[in-house]
Amino acid sequence: MIPAPFAYRRAGSVDEALSLLAEHGDEAKVLAGGHSLLPLMKLRLAVPEVVVDVGRLQDLSYVRDEGDAIAVGALTRHRDLETSDLLAREAPLLSHAAGFVGDPQVRHRGTLGGSLVHGDPASDLPAVVLAMGGTLVARGPRGSREIPAADFFQSLFETAMEPDELLTEVRIPKPQSRGWGFEKFNQRAIDWATVGVAVSGDQRPAIALVNMGGTPLRATAAEQALADGGSVADAAALAADGTEPPSDLSASADYRRHLARVLVRRAVEDARGRA
């Protein structure tokens, strides 16, 4: 299957990308690595009239130490996250989780920014960035703005991005504690997560859930229980509270809630084991 016809525009700079987006508005889609967009276009579930390729903007591919935070360029590929020594040292949850996205070929093309902007709740990295308290930097005709991850994911495939904006950077505050945990449960290694869990921190960790609703979600009840000194098992029992997971071919909502409880327990135990 092949995409419906569209016009391809390649941006040579962020400014050029922004002016292309300004010109074409809703009719344009941003193409980075293409591993979220092109599959949809091939199935004709996405039919943009214009595709703005930002894949050449090498200056948006970096992992930088900025003191309190790690700055990751939006076009940094999963493979680069996975192999970044800086991330392995300062934000190991992100580099570890990046190694579970798709398959090796997908990780050679797919980018952090693309994965976040796509807003798929079954995606791993949005939950990771949410758990780590990341901030997303978007540039548009009105300049740059910073959006906390907690406000970024709005509903199924909907984010805070405006059609004329480009995500340029993701800032990850350096974790205060050493512990972290990541669980991805799927039927086959190449499948999307049936349920996933990202845990940042150990004694009072942030816990984010993959595929437990229309957006990545914080398991707030479980977090609170841990913060109050509750046992991991007791806290994990609350992991699905307040979620509305989907029922689909791979899992019923009930099963997802159960998985969330089991996986949160395991991920928090892992996090504490690493602390």
């Binding site: 092109l38 070929q105 050679h108």
Partner: peptide
Amino acid sequence: TVHLNGESVKSCTMLAAQAD
């Protein structure tokens, strides 16, 4: 699967234009 600049990629999920 082919190699793009030495790395494996799926050539069905890439525009020829991206490989320019």
